[in-house]
Amino acid sequence: MLKVIPSITVGAMVALSLVACSSPGDTSCDATPPGSHSTSVTVSGKFGSEPKVTMPPAFDVSKTERSVLINGSGAPAQSGDAVDVHYTMYNASTGKQIELAPGTTWQEAKFVTNNAQKESLPGLYSSLLCSHEGDRVVSAIPSSELFGHTQTDMSGAGIGPTDTLVFIFDVSGVGPAPSPSPAPSTTPQPLPTPAAWETDVPKVDLGGDVPVVTLPKADAPTKLLLKVIKEGTGDVVTENSTVTFDYQGTSWNTGKIFDQSYTRGEPATFPVGQLVQGFTAAMVGQKVGATVLVSVPPVYGYGDGAINDQNLVGQTLVFLIQIRKSA
């Protein structure tokens, strides 16, 4: 499963890449044909709900294959249309399901099948072109036709540069693309400075293979707080560092561990700039070898919003971090 730490998740990369201003395209509808691999994926369950998926033995494709398991109705999606879907994603090379966002494997999105996407993301473009409302589509897409244009290392998500990805799309709507919205500001936000965590600090037991963090019976902190459990002695982590670290994340709201590296048997490695802001702030300025505990409020984590069991929005998160290496 995808580690929940990166601020740029797989689902966000896909959705943000596709929801763009539309440009007119050709009006033909030449659907991508099925192949032996797309037809070998078994999918069951109610349309519109996350399906049960049985993956065949590991496989790779050199070009996109597309199979329609449930036939909908209405006009097919033409180039330039918007396609509303729920979707899930698997790595065909490993057979594992990919998290699209923290704690989320079934996500809603609006994709725009315009000429820009045809050039930059041909696999997704051809998967959704000619789809009808009510279709359930299975696509096997080589990663070169999905993430290749971004030049982004997706190894932290369990996606290798030559892996094949399988999407299951439930198409809930097809229609004209929305008018483009103004581009968001790209001005970098300054990194927050954590305050010293001095009261209601969780107890940390590092005596076993998997650390134990015990939260106190207290309200969740509203500020970004940092407790240095052990000072490091190695290189200093900067905002430009790529860091190898072990971590354990616990939700203050649920009291449950939602992700950790310790049970996977190997630390994580990420550029610091790809992590959520509160996590980054906890590491920058620390030295290799340090062990820290940080409380991250929603504003520096996954954003404010109603708390649910689908993601980490609205939750205050506690991370135990052990910094192993920095480059």
Rank of each mutant, 00 (worst) to 15 (best):
T162E: 15
T164P: 10
V166T: 13
F167K: 00
F167L: 08
F167E: 07
I168V: 11
I168E: 11
F169A: 10
F169Y: 11
F169K: 01
V171N: 00
V171C: 08
S172G: 05
G175L: 04
G175S: 10
P176E: 15
A177S: 15
P178L: 14
P178G: 13
S179Q: 14
S179L: 14
P180V: 08
S181M: 15
S181L: 15
P182S: 14
P184M: 10
P184G: 00
T186V: 00
T187R: 08
T187A: 00
P188N: 09
P188L: 05
Q189R: 12
P190L: 04
P190A: 09
P190Q: 01
P190H: 07
T193S: 00
T193R: 03
T193H: 00
T193N: 01
P194C: 10
A195F: 06
A196G: 06
W197Y: 11
D200G: 05
D200P: 03
P202N: 10
P202H: 00
K203W: 01
V204C: 00
V204R: 05
D205A: 07
G207P: 04
G207I: 06
V210E: 06
P211M: 09
V212I: 01
V212F: 10
V213Y: 01
V213W: 02
L215P: 05
L215H: 05
K217Q: 08
A218F: 06
A218Q: 02
A218C: 02
A220N: 13
A220G: 13
A220Y: 08
A220W: 06
P221H: 13
P221A: 13
K223E: 15
K223C: 12
K223H: 15
L226N: 03
L226Y: 07
L226V: 07
V228F: 07
V228H: 07
I229N: 13
K230D: 00
G232Q: 05
G232I: 05
T233N: 06
G234T: 10
D235A: 15
D235T: 15
D235F: 02
V236F: 03
V237K: 00
V237F: 02
T238R: 14
E239G: 03
E239K: 09
N240I: 08
S241M: 09
T242N: 00
T242G: 11
V243M: 01
T244F: 12
T244D: 10
F245C: 10
D246W: 09
Y247D: 01
Y247S: 07
Y247N: 04
Y247R: 03
Q248W: 05
G249E: 11
T250E: 08
T250Q: 02
T254K: 07
T254S: 12
K256V: 11
F258I: 14
F258A: 13
D259C: 00
D259I: 06
Q260D: 07
Q260A: 11
Y262H: 05
R264E: 14
R264H: 13
G265W: 04
G265S: 10
E266A: 08
E266Y: 04
A268I: 13
A268L: 13
T269N: 11
T269L: 07
T269A: 10
F270S: 11
P271Q: 09
V272R: 02
V272Q: 12
V272C: 09
